[in-house]
Design a protein around this nucleic acid. Structure first.
Lengths: 190, 190, 190, 190
DNA sequence: AATGAATGAGCCTTCATTCAT
DNA sequence: CATGAATGAAGGCTCATTCAT
């Protein structure tokens, strides 16, 4: 008799535990054994639900992308103007890095661990970053209405690259100074 | 009977092989076994020279830092003005990424694999990036002579972050568009 | 809603898929998982129909015996004399080995995989070969009408053993030379 | 201080244990785990000595071939005439099957387990049987001095195939009747 | 300065089977 | 008649490291 909730289903439990471990320890450092122990599942259960660790990795990145995007959109929603939103994306980064103790970006971290460009994980990574770039493109277009389209694109790309560099160096130095530098540079760019 | 030269000393051979593999495959994916096979050394020889794989990892990053810096300085030496040198750093990035087939930065890749901030590798990584930041600071100071020092620092940091973002996204997208966007942004910044 | 035909019944589908795999890959190398995947059935369905993999193995050998015998009888039916029929058994072997790409005899292969003489599969194997021996006995008796019974039996056994050796060495060498040698020997024996 | 013998060396111990298990249980039914437990070795030790289970399998068959041949030659050495030697090969088979409790031939058993003709084990199997065939060819040639060479070859092949069939059916029926039938057939052939 | 045998925990994955629905 | 989630032992193999020589 499954009394209401709490019957979270082993599959979901595995995904949740794995997501946490993949992010905190890295994808390769995290073993299937460790995952199933955390989820209280048996080996066979794991492979009944996922045909490989890699498949779970893809699911992890895919759900992480969705959640991350939702969080970001939520964070931006009470900002009125595009320029404020762009700045808020950087504020979001600051909050995020503080919350994760500067663990950095799951996607970039996995990119570093995955040299093979044909690895399915690489698709998820590229897709995620592509979406972020497109967000910046939309916001910049909204903000710089009179700029020709190619200049807009170029500016958006620059903001995106600045964002990525900031993210990566906050992780590296475990400090907020890159964020502050980026924000004041951003002000000059908009 | 040590016949003439070619007796490069096992230690160096190990370092060379390891450096190649660590970079190409990642630090964790590369096993001690694989290294000694490549170097034609015995297990014991490895641990006679390095007290652990981690120690070798530190040596790898340290020598890589030196070589990378030398390459960069060499690349910049025939540029006359600071602004040209700054741009050349980005050109250097372009050449580098093409040569390594977009494998990215050994230091950032290792950062991603190494969540523990107390891991000795983290020191090497932070040190390397710190040095690069300082290079940008010197070049910007040389170029923007009338700018107050804090503005200079800030601008240098921004260029550094732009560089890092470009590096990381070239690796991700395996494409040169980030470099082109960054260079045109750079022109606006100087 | 059982829509018309094609509802061959999961049980039969499982048997068919398993038969193919057991023969081609060997009994032990073939997993229950693989079988149900091929048959499009669920785990539970498998164990609803067969109490164990072994039971399915027995069914496999039993149906294979029937089909094999039917094929052979069909192959012999237009031969008029016993001596011709005996030779035709060897021709049948040639055709069979060519068709199965020299995979050999399902029964002998399973024998090799099954050291325990009390394993139920062993009964099927022994039974199948016993029947083949008896066929040779009947044919030889028909051909050598004036030979005393014990000599007949002996000759039949020899032909049977020659057949088995030929079968096994065609599988081994993936060649028809054993068949040719056996047939010319057979001519001397009859 | 390794006192005299008993320092059988883990590698040899592994080979010995594996040889026993591979033969008695079959190659695939025997796990690496089981082998190292029997040999009192660690997992790593196994893979320090053999790059794969398959490599050990090849070594097993190769040493088994040598030992088997030596045994057979030993068994034949006090027979004076070729015809006696041929018969003795079949007696050797009888003794062998009794000693191994009708487990059959390691090579043919492994053949049955190994459908892939490109598997390295297949080479060893074919080589072993080829050598046995050549032994029969030599003995027959020695016995039938006036027979044309091709007839000799053909007869030798037939004896070989009879031997193989006998071997396989003794294993199947766990009985000596095939041997008796084969020997009386052999008398007719020589 | 160098060897290589030995360790044992861990890697990802498949096994045959059970059971509640 | 059929489903599919769950089990846990076992599969072959790699890991970083130690130690006696």
């Amino acid at each position: 008799m499954p009394t209401s909730t709490a019957n979270t289903n082993k599959r979901n439990e595995i995904i949740e535990v794995a997501s946490k471990l993949f992010y905190e320890q890295g994808y390769h450092r995290t073993g299937v054994q460790q995952i199933i122990e955390g989820a209280g599942a048996a080996k066979g259960t794991f492979y009944a639900h996922f045909k490989s660790k890699e498949e779970l990795g893809v699911i992890w990145l895919r759900t992480r992308h969705t959640k991350w995007n939702t969080s970001l959109v939520e964070f931006l929603k009470d900002k009125d103007v595009a320029s404020e939103k762009i700045l808020a994306v950087f504020d979001f980064l600051g909050k995020w890095m503080k919350d994760c103790d500067f663990r950095g970006c799951a996607f970039l971290n996995t990119l570093a661990e995955t040299p093979d460009p044909n690895n399915p994980l690489r698709n998820e990574i590229a897709g995620h970053k592509q979406k972020l770039l497109e967000l910046f493109q939309r916001l910049i277009a909204e903000h710089q209405t009179k700029l020709p389209k190619d200049k807009c694109q170029n500016l958006a790309a620059s903001v995106f690259l600045l964002f990525e560099g900031t993210l990566v160096e906050m992780q590296n130095f475990r400090d907020t100074w890159p964020l502050e530098a980026a924000k004041s540079q951003l002000a000059r760019m908009l």
